[in-house]
Structures are given as structure tokens and as C-alpha cells.
Design a protein around this nucleic acid. Structure first.
Length: 503
DNA sequence: CGGATTTGACCGGCGC
DNA sequence: GCGCCGGTCAAATCCG
């Protein structure tokens, strides 16, 4: 079983490498005649309205590696001919136009390649860490299956970091007992997890200038704004070393969700235990504190409080990363909040940002749903306002087996989850995205476009990928649960930081 | 009886 | 230093 897990993970990593190679092909395919048309070729070949002689010119252009500007030399030599005719001048003008276009495409491809290179670099680092972690586990005393499951969770976490190590590292810092084996409980956070996480913490993180707390949200959201004071949980504190302390604010990324609900607490697929209730200043409604009980030691907490101004609105604020599998009903929401938090932590928000995040919310089925960033607060918070959804209860109370949470990425990646190859015991050697390309060509393009237009998308993508992997685990007959008392296990990424909430 | 909830006490951070 | 406030703990209580 352990070997199988390892093989899976390595396969996944390998597939990531394949992703890189394949993506490069998009750029360099012009020299590979055995491959199907690549984007550049497609771009030019799409000009079917052009005369044949121009098409031939396009073809000649695309015969050169777009990463090398050899095509430009060809054009310049041609344009330097003093005996050109009027037609030649016309065609040369067109060539110039095409040259500009080609340059633009090359530049675009270069950027894409750079992005992929960064991803690959992070990926390789993680791979090395995985190997180290697994070797360490192999030499250590055998642990129960519980521990192995947690290993899987940490591996999934790593997978997420492959996409965006920054955000993942930041998101996972709430994990307890990950840097100090002495404090960790036997059933949680195995050694390899500790090693991985410790290394991850060494990664440089983007700093958001600590500014004055400026609440960009209405009074209803004071609940989330106030969460920053947290801390104590002695167990967690023990795991923090001096270097990590300055980064603490990043670990407190929160996702606050506003939604209309009559119920005091809406099921979000996770199991929660109430551990406190307080009256918060400025709100006559008490604030309830919950912690995740799906796994022993899960650091995820949430606050639930009704909006003072509109008590039909329930505000749920999540913090922390699950260190255990999550049931399908929870993964949709979890991935969404993870994506939101990842976006928040990805570094693009350097000050008070009260915006409607286009890259994120554009994917929302309900146009009125907005995500508000408040990175200037002591702890960055992203608020998803679902109160204007046409029928919020539709997703809030949807059947667990068919989560219909109207948030980004979920539906898109369900396609991957359902793919037969994806469900196979062994992950394909082609990356999930490429693989999606087989059946859903537009998806890869969409993802690529999203990456180029919004770097933060990688973080969101990471969460979604994590969700996929988690779902796969639950689908391949492995019903292991981290917590014996927990419900259906599933993974949310421990990975994914904040969980979604509903409410 | 065991697990979940309630609720007052306690602690740490922060502002004055 | 003091008080306020948010967050957590843990004993008491409730509930299935």
C-alpha cells in the first residue's frame, strides 16, 4: 500500500514533468514535424482567408523555432531586396505585420515557458523532498496505516506546492506539530511530513507590508477581522521557531464566507466541535468557535457569527489546513476557499484591497458573488459574499454526493476526476491537464490563458488539483480514515488551507 | 456512558 | 500598568 502510494505520487510528479515538456512543445513545436499542429501553427493556419502565397509565407515562418528569431532574419533579407515589386512591397508590409505578431507570440510563449520553468523548479524541489521524506520513513519505525494516510495527505500538500509553493507553504503553516517531532502526536504528522513542512517553511515568502488595519468590509465582517489575535494554542506555538515568527501573519490567512442561512450552522461536509462561544464587540449575536474533529489534531478552526445588520446572513470564517482526507461534500467548498486563500496569499495584494477579484470570481456561476480581499488587516482575509446568489441554499444544502457548490474550478476539475484514466489505480504518466486536453482541449487553453493572465491562478489551481487527488483517493477504494471517529475520510488537502464554509 | 455542548475562567495581545 | 478584547481551555452539563 505504501509503495503504491509512493508510486502514485511519483507518477504524478513525473506527469508534471511531462506537463513541462509538453508545454514546451507548444513553444518549440515548429521544429517537430511529427507532432500535431501547435498553437503558433494553429494561429497562422487559422487565416484561411488569406491568399495561398501568404499562407506559404506563414508556413515558412513557422518552420523556424519560434524560440529563436531565425524567422526574422529570413524576412529582413527578403525585405532588403532592392528590386522588389509593388506586390513585394505589399507582401513585405504584411510580413512586417506578421513579424510583429510573431514577436508578440514569441514573447508570450517565453513568458509561458518561464512560468512553467518556475513551476517545474518548485516541482523538482518537492520531488527531492518527497524522496527524502520517503527514505526517512522507510528507515524509521513502521507506523500504523493512520500515519500512512497522513503521509498521503502531506504528499498531496506537496502536489499543491508544485503549483505554487509560496501559497502552499503559507497555507500549511497552520499545521500543528510539523516542525518538532517531539510535540507531535503519534497518529499525526509523521516524520516525513515534518521534514517536508520544515523545508517548505524555508522557502522565501512574499511579504505583505504590515499596515494599519483598515477594514474594507462592513461591520458584518468584524468577525473575520478580529481573528488575528489568535494564538495561543500552546501546542502550535511550540512548533514555531524564531525564524517562522515573522511569517506568522501569512499563516493566518482566512477565508470568510457570507451566505444567507436560517440554520445556525450549515453543514459543509466537515465535522466540527464547538469549543467556545463569546459575545463579540459590536455584534449582539454571539460568535461560536468550532474546530475540525474529522482527524485528531486537525488545526482547522472556524468561527460562525450572524451579521449584526442582517441576521439572515451567516458569516463563517475558516482558518487552517486540514491534515486529513475530506469527504466529497467538503472538497468542493474546501477547494474553493483554498483557492481563495491561495490567491490571497500569493502576493498580489500588497495593501488594502477591497476589490472584486476578477480572475477568481469570473468563474463564479453567480455574477453577484464577489470575493473581497483585505490583505491590510493583521491577517489577510478574503471574503466571499454569497448573499446575493439567486439560490444560495441550493449549494448550501446540496446532497453530499453531488456537490453543486457554485464556485470556481470545481466543475472544471470534476471532468478530470471522472476521467477513466484518472480513476485508474495508477495515475497516468501524462499530466492531468494534458490529459484533460484529450477530451477537453479547451480546458488546457483556458488554464494556460489563466496562468498567463493571472499568476495567482496557479495557487487556485493547486487547490483544485489537490481536490482531484483527494477525490481520487476516495474513489480507489481506499476508505482509510485518518480519524477512526471521523466521517468519510477524504482529503482536503491538508493542503488546502482554508476550508470553505458556508453558512 | 461516552461524546458533544455550554459557559465561566484564563491567557496573551494591544491600545491608552 | 491597566483594562479591553479575542481566543482558548476545561469543568460542568446535556443528550442520545
Amino acid at each position: 500500500m505504501e509503495n503504491q502510494q509512493q508510486r502514485r505520487e511519483f507518477t504524478f510528479l513525473h506527469s508534471g514533468d511531462s506537463l513541462r515538456r509538453n508545454s514546451n512543445r507548444v513553444v518549440e513545436n515548429s521544429v517537430d514535424h511529427d507532432k500535431p499542429p501547435i498553437k503558433e501553427v494553429d494561429f497562422f493556419s487559422s487565416n484561411n482567408h488569406l491568399p495561398d502565397h501568404q499562407k506559404r509565407k506563414y508556413e515558412s515562418l513557422t518552420q523556424f523555432d519560434s524560440s529563436i528569431n531565425t524567422g526574422l532574419d529570413l524576412l529582413s533579407s527578403s525585405s532588403g531586396n532592392p528590386s522588389k515589386t509593388a506586390n513585394d512591397e505589399k507582401s513585405n508590409t504584411e510580413r512586417s505585420t506578421l513579424q510583429v505578431e510573431l514577436d508578440r507570440l514569441n514573447e508570450e510563449n517565453r513568458k509561458l515557458r518561464n512560468s512553467l520553468g518556475q513551476i517545474t523548479k518548485s516541482y523538482n524541489e518537492l520531488q527531492g523532498q518527497l524522496i527524502l521524506a520517503m527514505q526517512k520513513q522507510a528507515h524509521g519505525s513502521p507506523r500504523e496505516q493512520k500515519a500512512e494516510l497522513n503521509d498521503m495527505s502531506s504528499l498531496i500538500m506537496s502536489a499543491q506546492q508544485f503549483v505554487d509553493p509560496r501559497s502552499s507553504a503559507a497555507l500549511n503553516v497552520n499545521e500543528p506539530s510539523i516542525s518538532n517531532n517531539e510535540t507531535q502526536e503519534l497518529s499525526i504528522s509523521p516524520a516525513n511530513t515534518s521534514e517536508i513542512m520544515s523545508k517548505e517553511r524555508e522557502r522565501p515568502m512574499i511579504k505583505i507590508p504590515a499596515g494599519k488595519q483598515i477594514s474594507s468590509e462592513d461591520s458584518c465582517d468584524k468577525t473575520s477581522q478580529s481573528w488575528g489575535a489568535s494564538p495561543k494554542s500552546p501546542k502550535f506555538d511550540q512548533t514555531m521557531n524564531e525564524e517562522q515568527a515573522p511569517e506568522a501573519p501569512f499563516r493566518k490567512a482566512r477565508v470568510s464566507v457570507r451566505a444567507r442561512s436560517e440554520a445556525p450552522l450549515i453543514s459543509d461536509g466537515c465535522q466540527w466541535r464547538k469549543y467556545g462561544q463569546k459575545m463579540a464587540k459590536g455584534n449582539p449575536c454571539p460568535r461560536a468557535y468550532y474546530r475540525c474533529t474529522m482527524a485528531v489534531g486537525c488545526p482547522v478552526r472556524k468561527q460562525v457569527q450572524r451579521c449584526a445588520e442582517d441576521r439572515t446572513i451567516l458569516i463563517t470564517t475558516y482558518e487552517g489546513n486540514h491534515n486529513h482526507p475530506l469527504p466529497p461534500a467538503a472538497t468542493a467548498m474546501a477547494s474553493t476557499t483554498s483557492a481563495a486563500a491561495a490567491m490571497l496569499l500569493s502576493g498580489s495584494t500588497t495593501s488594502k484591497d477591497a476589490i472584486t477579484t476578477s480572475g477568481f470570481t469570473n468563474s463564479l456561476p453567480y455574477a453577484s458573488t464577489v470575493a473581497t480581499l483585505s490583505a491590510s488587516a493583521p491577517f489577510p482575509t478574503i471574503t466571499l459574499d454569497l448573499t446575493h446568489s439567486p439560490n444560495p441554499m441550493q449549494f448550501l444544502r446540496g446532497p453530499p454526493s453531488t456537490p453543486t457548490f457554485p464556485l470556481p474550478f470545481h466543475g472544471c476539475f470534476q471532468q478530470l476526476i471522472r476521467h477513466p484514466m484518472y480513476l485508474a489505480p495508477k495515475l497516468p504518466t501524462v499530466p492531468a491537464l494534458q490529459f484533460g486536453q484529450q477530451q477537453h482541449p479547451s480546458m488546457v487553453e483556458t488554464v494556460t490563458a489563466a496562468i498567463t493572465s493571472d499568476p495567482n491562478f496557479t495557487a487556485a489551481l493547486a487547490a483544485a488539483i489537490s481536490t482531484i487527488m483527494g477525490t481520487q483517493k476516495s474513489n480507489d477504494g481506499n476508505n482509510n480514515n485518518v480519524s477512526g471517529s471521523g466521517g468519510p475520510g477524504s482529503p482536503q488537502l491538508p493542503q488546502s488551507c482554508t476550508t470553505f464554509s458556508t453558512n
